[in-house]
């Protein structure tokens, strides 16, 4: 089902989605560009090259298909841009982001019927549990497909995340592929200063999860290789966690590597710099 996306040039698509992100948040002077920019390579690989999905015929239940849940719901700019660019809804609809009567709510929601979104997220820590339940349901229904979920690393502060890790490991939910956006920044500052995770990898191991790491989370090929490797570890009794080292704000020079652009929109001049750094490739909305 994903064969129609093979033709896109992933590097070119990364540029276009970054443009969408900064234009969307600039237009409404709100939203979360930092985490969105850091995850573009992950989203492009997943949605254009990995997922077994059918964007034009979205169903809530996704029987016979892979599913994706965004637990760190605030990175809607990259999520919506990717969904639109791979065909879930018209690209032109991106211009309604965060505006009144839009299906593109500030945080993802199902109420307005936006194709591609299967649960509301934004209040952190909840989407992982939902993904665990969906993966277990797929196993019960003998559906061999995979459930993917992305969480932030700041989101790991939430206790529910660790409840979900415990549960998923205990119940051997081994069709679940968890990616942690390990940018080591959260809205108030570096994660080491806000809530130190210490040895995160060791914690994940100790919870009974299969853990792999990708040090180059903004390198298209490295991310692809990591997901493929993680997939090969599924169905062996453990959920798989990919610790994806990304740079918050990657791809826009003045936003990269700091928490300052977690939830701040660029002004007119800053937007121009960001757009020069990311040329139009697949056409602006």
């Amino acid at each position: 089902m994903n064969t129609t996306f093979k033709k896109i040039d992933k590097a070119q698509m990364v540029y276009q989605i970054r443009r969408d992100i900064v234009r969307m948040v600039h237009q409404v002077q709100s939203g979360h560009p930092g985490g969105s920019l850091g995850c573009v390579e992950f989203f492009v690989n997943l949605f254009f090259d990995i997922l077994n999905h059918d964007p034009q015929n979205f169903t809530m239940e996704a029987i016979g298909q892979d599913m994706f849940f965004l637990s760190n719901g605030h990175i809607t700019p990259v999520y919506y841009s990717t969904l639109a660019r791979c065909g879930y809804f018209p690209i032109d609809e991106l211009k309604t982001f965060r505006k009144i009567h839009s299906r593109l709510q500030g945080h993802p929601a199902t109420l307005e019927g936006l194709p591609g979104v299967r649960v509301a997220t934004g209040s952190l820590g909840q989407g992982l549990s939902v993904a665990v339940g969906a993966a277990q349901a797929k196993k019960l229904l003998h559906d061999p497909n995979i459930v993917y979920v992305l969480t932030g690393d700041g989101e790991l502060n939430e206790g529910q995340i660790w409840e979900a890790f415990m549960y998923a490991a205990h119940h051997q939910v081994d069709n679940l592929f968890i990616t942690i956006d390990y940018n080591q920044q959260q809205i108030d500052g570096p994660t080491s200063e806000i809530m130190n995770m210490f040895d995160l990898k060791a914690k994940l191991f100790a919870f009974g999860l299969e853990v792999i790491e990708c040090k180059l989370g903004n390198n298209i090929q490295s991310v692809y290789d990591a997901i493929v490797m993680g997939k090969s570890l599924l169905r062996k009794g453990k959920p798989v966690v990919l610790l994806l080292h990304t740079v918050m704000g990657h791809g826009v020079s003045f936003m990269a590597g700091t928490h300052h652009w977690h939830g701040v929109a660029p002004n007119d001049d800053q937007l121009q710099v960001a757009l020069i750094e990311n040329p139009e490739t697949y056409g602006d909305y």
Binding site: L128, S129, V132, G133, A134, A137, L140, G159, Q160, Y167
Partner: peptide
């Protein structure tokens, strides 16, 4: 599904199962 003493996760797992049609 035994969820242990972790009600927040239980509610989310239930939501996920309902998403798939259970």
């Amino acid at each position: 599904f035994q969820c242990g003493i972790a009600e927040a996760n239980m509610m989310g797992v239930a939501a996920g199962m309902a998403t798939v049609g259970l």
